[in-house]
Design a protein around this nucleic acid. Structure first.
Lengths: 204, 204
DNA sequence: TGATTTAACGACCATTTGGTCTATATTTCT
DNA sequence: AGAAATATAGACCAAATGGTCGTTAAATCA
């Protein structure tokens, strides 16, 4: 069953490390320190690669960062797809979505912050590759939330006069803002109350 | 009227540049590029100071950054004090506060971003001096907004069941989130609609 | 005017930066 | 087994980093 397409194995010494795992470890460093503040030695320590191997496998620091960012974003989108699954009750989904952000904004998670936001502020203005990824992510996120709100509205669960598009932008801004202020004051309980209060304004 | 306390002039050559102005120029650079990405030469160019003068006047890069951050925060607090002045109609004040953020989140302003948020994400986790300043700023901001909401409530202008503390956190998170997503997609009109929709949920 | 004080300048420094390259180890294929 | 191919390691590099220091210019006071 293996090698159905009879693709010949590469000639030389096979890579002894898992590239995906290395990207994930690199992601952890970028996440904790930011792009400019992570130096090559940090990445080498985290990935347990030598300079040569890292450059051979990923090109340069920037390319590795892009892969790490893609990885982070993919995780976030996956999570959203589960929370806001169209087969679920939309309001329950929105509640789960908000609860996830409240959780990530609390305690140590909160202090670590969000790689997307950090990258947005640090690089998006001067790095087109980064900008594209971030812009698309926020767009996807807002669309998913708007979609859930539309389904809620169709089911008669929304308060009078609530426009799904506006409400989606409000919710997205709220959760992103949450992660910003939680970098310095990650208090879970107050934040959960605020999230509840916000959603309560939109649902019937 | 001058020199009432008869403080003797310093002996030697008087400083020929305005330190406050230099701080403001430095602030502009940090604001556009972030802390790690601004190199000494950038600061020298912006302040028109030589290395020696800059170090004599401000100590080091980090101290200069702190002064720039204080300057930025002071400006923001001043603005808030005007917008949310207790002698004004609180709802009008809140509307002005939101409008200010919508404006700053639009077009070129939006793309430039916010020094406080950028600093929060880049440094707050690992720099106690920065953390203190940021935490205090967010606290002040939330308190001012909560105060305006309380006055609005006392005047019977708030919708039923709105808690000023929760609503304040929601509004603060909203505006900060706005500035994040506006780094990549600074669209003013949609944002203004969202801000209006949000405030409308809280007022009567 | 001359002594004193301090701002201003920019050459200079050690360290660190991201990145390259050569030598070696290890695997596969014939 | 031997040839070919490629991963790995880390020495090495030029450039840039933040920061220091000796010298010079300019102002004040006696």
């Amino acid at each position: 069953m293996s090698n159905r397409t009879s693709v010949p194995l590469p000639r030389g010494r096979p890579r002894s490390f898992d590239a995906e795992a290395a990207v994930e470890r690199a992601m952890g460093v970028f996440w904790s320190r930011g792009y400019h503040a992570t130096a090559l030695p940090d990445l080498l320590r985290a990935t347990k690669l030598s300079r040569g191997s890292l450059y051979a496998a990923f090109g340069d620091k920037h390319s590795l960062f892009l892969r790490a960012l893609d990885c982070y974003i993919a995780d976030a989108v996956t999570r959203m797809d589960i929370e806001l699954d169209p087969r679920k009750e939309p309001v329950d989904g929105l509640r789960a979505y908000l609860a996830g952000y409240v959780d990530r904004a609390s305690g140590a998670h909160g202090r670590r912050g969000c790689l997307v936001i950090a990258t947005t502020m640090e690089l998006a203005g001067r790095d087109a590759d980064v900008n594209r990824r971030i812009a698309s992510f926020f767009k996807v996120m807002e669309a998913r939330v708007a979609d859930a709100l539309s389904r809620a509205k169709a089911a008669g669960k929304l308060a009078d006069g609530v426009d799904p598009a506006n409400a989606a932008r409000i919710l997205v801004c709220f959760v992103e803002g949450l992660r910003v202020i939680s970098k310095t004051a990650p208090t879970g309980t107050i934040t959960q109350a605020a999230a509840d209060a916000l959603l309560d304004r939109f649902i019937r």
